[in-house]
Amino acid sequence: MHNLRQQFIAFSVSTGVLRFGEFTTKAGRLSPYFFNAGLFHEGATLGQLAQFYAQTLLDAKVEFDMLFGPAYKGITLASATAVALAGKGHNTAFAFNRKEAKDHGEGGTIVGAKLAGKVVIIDDVISAGTSVRESVDMIRAAGAEPCAVLIALDRMERSGTDGALSASSAVQEVSREFGIPVISIGNLDDLFSYLSEAEGEAGADPQLAQYREAVSSYRARYGIA
């Protein structure tokens, strides 16, 4: 597992951010895995995560001027990614929003650099796409241009409920709605590859086989084509 995407999956598993078992998602589905970026709560792991974000963004060859982090998780992710980008020779401005407008001092809901130019939205995952839509509205209202969304993990799941599943995932719907790319550090295919490769390694966790089968079944039921 030498490529960046699978390194990210392995890193997420080793830190306990990506776990296997039985978890209920926001959509009410019983998922065999769970990704919680809020568990990147130490300086070392957050710094390493930011390196993944920064390198993924640079590898995507997207033209951008600044970063925007939607409250709340996006605040830490955008600021940490800006630090990582600076360490790679790309000094980049960033901003984030408050949930409630400030009625004193500078006022408003935007903190940090002035929204201008081409803006990359940084978040952990896209579930319903609500935070992205709110971010796009704020960026455009400021006269700037959202140019991409960068997330940690793309679950590659079809939207909707059993019996009424859409043909697209929330990520695909966001990309289509706003005409901008959604870039992920890793996705469900990478996770499955990690399980498949790790299962064959010497001294591998014997439970990996059952997790791989569970993820395969889940992907067959809810995954996008």
Results as ranks from 00 to 15, higher is better:
Tyr53Ser: 08
Ala142Lys: 07
Gly38Gln: 01
Glu157Pro: 00
His104Pro: 03
Leu153Phe: 15
Glu145His: 11
Gly143Val: 10
Ala80Cys: 01
Ile75Met: 00
Arg98Trp: 09
Cys147Val: 15
Ala164Cys: 08
Asp123Ser: 07
Ala101Lys: 06
Ser127Glu: 05
Leu58Val: 14
Glu42Ile: 09
Arg98Ile: 14
Ala128His: 00
Gly74Leu: 02
Leu115Met: 11
Ile121Asp: 02
Ala60His: 05
Lys114Trp: 13
Glu63Lys: 14
Ser131Pro: 00
Val120Pro: 10
Ala50Gln: 01
Ala86Pro: 10
Ser31Asn: 05
Asp154Phe: 13
Ala86Met: 15
Leu46Met: 12
Thr92His: 15
Asp103Phe: 04
Leu67Glu: 12
Gly163Ile: 11
Leu67His: 08
Val132Lys: 00
Val119Arg: 01
Ala71Gln: 00
Asn91Pro: 14
Ile75Arg: 02
Gly38Ala: 00
Gly163Leu: 10
Glu157Asp: 11
Phe64Lys: 09
Arg158Gln: 03
Gln48Thr: 14
Asp124Trp: 04
Leu57Gln: 07
Leu58Gln: 12
Val111Gln: 02
Thr92Val: 15
Thr76Leu: 12
Leu58Thr: 13
Asp137His: 05
Phe34Gly: 02
Ile139Lys: 04
Ala86Val: 13
Leu58Trp: 13
Leu49Gly: 03
Val132Asn: 03
Val132Pro: 03
Glu42Thr: 15
Gly38Ile: 02
Ala148Ile: 10
Asp154His: 12
Gln55Gly: 09
Phe52Ser: 01
Ala95Val: 14
His90Lys: 15
Gly107Leu: 13
Met138Ala: 05
Thr76Cys: 09
Gly163Val: 11
Thr56Cys: 09
Gly117Thr: 11
Asp65Asn: 12
Leu57Ser: 09
Leu165Met: 12
